[in-house]
Amino acid sequence: MYKNLFIIVILAGLGILLGRFLLTHHENTSLPELPAYYTDNADHEVGAANVVTAVVVTYRGFDTLGEVTILFVAASLIAMFLKNGLVRKERDPRPSSVILSTAQKLLFPLIVLFGVYVFANGHLTPGGGFQGGAIIATGFLLLLMANPQAEFKHGLFNSIESISGISYVVIGILGAILGLGFLDNRFLPLGHLGRLFSAGAIPVIYSLIGLKVGAELSNILHHLNEVQNEE
């Protein structure tokens, strides 16, 4: 009972701090200095039409490398903890309905195609590698829902993930070797604004990130599905 009171006092204190921030906060009327530089120079320095993509991949590219590392560590931890399911018990699920199996056969290629479209056009429209990877993982989730005994080729997914990760770092080092800076995208030609093959190495980087995130999230879902089958 005292613990509840203590918790309420702490949360009330936090609420008062946040309320004071809310009372003395004014909306910005013009962009601060750094975002003004990013929005003004994103079209001729980077060549991408989507300014958020330009910020995520080139201006703040090192943070994206950290994020890819964190996802890799999380996927490895989940795979390590859920891996001792060697005793595979044959469970007897109800066969999934005709609607689900037919819809899965029809929709799975379309969902994967849509995911590839989202990450290939990340520098032109809203989208990018992380969104496209999540959409691809949702397609694999539909496959797992329709037939839970589906066999995945673990070797293929693991090698796609590892090769994409290594290629991302190699592209970054290539930018540093050619004298431009780590993860600079200007070693490929910038092209016209708004075309598919423009913005230097951004389509290549985002495709690699999209494949990596898609393979990782599908691996996590498959491990969680395999756990239902053991013991």
């Binding site: 601060p32 975002p35 003004a36 990013y38 929005t39 003004d40």
Partner: peptide, 10 residues
Amino acid sequence: HLSDKFVDPV
């Protein structure tokens, strides 16, 4: 004059 038309992207 893009910095007068866009919200903050960072």
